[in-house]
């Protein structure tokens, strides 16, 4: 039972990382109608810059700030230089141009940081574990990640639901012709939304740094999970991103944790582990396929 709770917390933590990634991306999809493959690159930038600044300054908080700044700034630059030319183009053009951006950023990090992965230490003040239930200790760092993620989700909700900027963003996601007709400066709104999205991706990246290896190409594995989240949740829907991220995080984590044991009940050891590992790896895609058969436009179509 304790093991289950621990894995549920792990799933929650992955779900929150995925939410930070997909919240920004789903808005970019919904408002600008741009399919952006390079979103994972900002996650990677956040992780690299965060890791470098943390180890140079010795302060994890400074690392986070630097990661947020770098990812947000890189996002604004990319929006102004490249994305802006893609808004009214075909999806194919958008896919290929942002694919080019991925090649560029992946190689750029290799040129700056080399081919070896960086390892980022958990800051000392979060290095311990907390006994959250009798007999169940859980790493403080992961609890902090969950807490920060929830806080950001709340802030995002406040921004979107309660402020004038948020109202415009929501209006844009459901009807972008309307928002232009209302005289809102679309250019600045787009840049802001894009920058906000990449900033969140950078946050996800720097927080994942101490858990995963920081390496070139790390953005793409999370990007594809993010796509699954957005497809499940529905393009342009923040609510969909929350539900989709939690679903994907849970199914993936719990599948990896418990399928091998389940399979060993029926199959000999080695075969069971192989089959279970494969099934666990593809479980979220099967979840996505099932949801698509039921609702082709996702759970919360915008």
């Amino acid at each position: 039972m304790l093991l289950v709770i621990e894995q549920v917390l792990n799933g929650l933590q992955l779900g929150i990382t995925l939410f930070l990634m997909s919240a920004g991306l789903t808005l970019v999809f919904g408002i600008m109608r741009v399919i952006n493959l390079a979103h994972g690159s900002f996650y990677m930038i956040g992780a690299y810059v965060g890791a470098t600044v943390t180890s140079a300054s010795g302060s994890f908080l400074l690392g986070i700030l630097a990661a947020l700044g770098a990812a947000g700034l890189a996002g604004i630059l990319v929006e102004c230089i490249v994305l802006r030319h893609l808004y009214d183009r075909e999806h194919l053009t958008q896919v290929l141009a942002t694919f080019g951006l991925i090649l560029f950023f992946n190689e750029l990090t290799r040129m700056i940081w080399g081919r070896q992965p960086l390892f980022m230490d958990v800051p000392p003040w979060l290095a311990g574990s907390i006994e959250i239930l009798p007999g169940l200790t859980y790493p403080s760092y992961r609890i902090a990640v969950i807490a920060v993620g929830m806080l950001v989700a709340l802030l995002l909700w406040f921004l979107l639901a309660r402020t004038r900027l948020g109202m415009r963003i929501r209006a844009g996601a459901s009807n972008r012709e309307m928002i232009a007709a209302l005289g809102v400066n679309i250019k600045i709104l787009y840049t802001l939304v894009f920058g906000l999205g990449t900033l969140l991706a950078g946050l996800a990246g720097v927080m994942a740094g101490p858990i995963l290896a920081v390496e070139s190409g790390m953005g793409e594995s999370i990007l594809i999970l993010t796509f699954v989240v957005i497809v499940i949740g529905g393009i342009g829907s923040i609510r969909g991103a929350v539900i989709g991220a939690l679903l994907v995080g849970m199914v993936d984590t719990l599948g990896r944790a418990f399928l091998p044991a389940l399979f060993r009940l029926f199959l000999p050891g080695a075969h069971a582990d192989g089959a279970a590992a494969s099934l666990a790896a593809i479980s979220i895609y099967m979840l996505m396929a099932a949801i698509l058969l039921w609702r082709p436009r996702g759970l919360f179509p915008a």
Partner: peptide, 17 residues
């Protein structure tokens, strides 16, 4: 069954699967 951006993401996801 889908089109546009959904189609792009879903073909990608199935290939990754």
């Amino acid at each position: 069954r889908t089109s546009g951006m959904h189609f792009i993401m879903i073909t990608l996801a199935f290939a990754q699967m």
